[in-house]
């Protein structure tokens, strides 16, 4: 093969060893992995867009779902997610500084910046775990109708959301647990809500100041609030109480919303977690002087590419899940 094809530079093309793209094998493969992973995430986000456009008039409003900040009470839409975005961008910066220090063969600086990157990643994963916990726990509670629509409650005077705990009656009733001996079917029972359907319904009837808010988004871009008469009418459709979220139902609205939340942020969180693990491995290698002996810090660069990619994906998740 030696005599067949040669490149312009006179190098042997078929013998291997040349770099038409000017990047080493490892870096090139990392880029190709990133392309394929980007397509995976695009698939998720496009599927989210599909489901959202399909239910465009009833989709939950993210501003009203993600309103919590740890250690603070009150309504702070977007603030915590913005903080998480900033943490991730910051850790991207420390990573690129580590790569830069690696180019200049400054071992101690690489150690410092990699350490800061790992800390940033850990804060981000922790924040995401907290987001999940808050999302799963829920805050106001809602009713679900036979058709799977979610009915939320608002205070008629203030127009603010009302939690089912605020108006539900405590009735002297015993909840009978479904046992296998009492039915042909026996299904494992899920979580137990803090109020039964009857308690919420009776409490609603006794409190004229509470109205039902449906999933439907009106022309002002807000959820439709029914008047008292319509609310009482709509209440008849309710079949169960929903608190928080799981993969089957959630109190925020469309079931798909929670599914996509868990799936997309979960998949991204797993990427961040693996990124932190890679960073830790490389961090110890740097401390041990592996790359000092090897003569270059290209491994830091490759891990850095992955880390920046994770940041890049978050930029898109942030926009399409929380902002738009």
């Amino acid at each position: 093969m030696d005599t067949t094809v040669t490149s312009e530079s006179g190098e042997n093309v078929w013998g291997g060893g040349n770099r038409p793209l000017g990047a080493s094998y490892g870096k090139l493969m990392m880029w190709f992995f990133i392309v394929s992973d980007a397509l995976t995430f695009s698939g998720f986000l496009a599927a989210y867009g599909f489901s959202r456009f399909k239910f465009i008039e009833t989709w939950p409003i993210a501003d009203e779902v993600f309103t919590h900040v740890p250690f603070f009470h009150g309504n702070f839409p977007m603030i915590y997610v913005a903080f998480m975005t900033f943490i991730l961008i910051m850790s991207s910066v420390t990573m690129v500084l580590a790569v830069d220090a690696g180019h200049n063969m400054k071992q101690n600086k690489v150690i410092l910046y990699l350490f800061l990157t790992i800390i940033g990643g850990a804060i981000f994963v922790g924040s995401q775990a907290w987001e999940w916990a808050t999302f799963i726990k829920g805050d106001f509670g809602a009713l679900e109708t036979k058709g799977g629509r979610v009915l939320q409650f608002v205070n008629a005077e203030t127009g603010e959301r009302a939690a089912i705990a605020d108006f539900s009656k405590t009735l002297p009733e015993d909840r009978v647990k479904h046992m296998s001996s009492e039915g042909v079917w026996y299904q494992e029972e899920g979580y137990k809500t803090s109020f039964s359907l009857n308690e919420v319904v009776e409490g609603f009837k006794a409190n004229p100041g509470i109205l039902i808010r449906t999933e439907k988004i009106n022309e002002q871009g807000e959820k439709t609030v029914l008047d008292r008469k319509e609310s009482l009418n709509r209440l008849k459709d309710a079949v169960r109480v929903v608190e928080g979220a799981n993969l089957v139902r959630n109190e925020y609205g469309s079931r798909l919303f929670a599914d996509f939340f868990f799936f997309i942020t979960g998949f991204h969180g797993f990427h961040v977690f693996s990124g932190v693990v890679f960073n830790i491995i490389i961090f110890f290698n740097v401390i041990l002087g592996t790359y000092e002996r090897r003569g270059h810090y290209e491994m830091v660069e490759k891990v850095g590419l992955y880390w920046h990619f994770v940041d890049l994906v978050w930029v898109f998740v942030f926009t399409f899940f929380y902002l738009v």
Partner: peptide, 24 residues
């Protein structure tokens, strides 16, 4: 690296959102 995803993703988004609007 850049044009491959841009081309494929634009196509995917176009086709899915178009279809979703129809389903709506």
């Amino acid at each position: 690296v850049v044009w491959t995803p841009i081309f494929l993703v634009s196509y995917l988004i176009f086709i899915l959102l178009f279809e979703a609007t129809y389903v709506f």
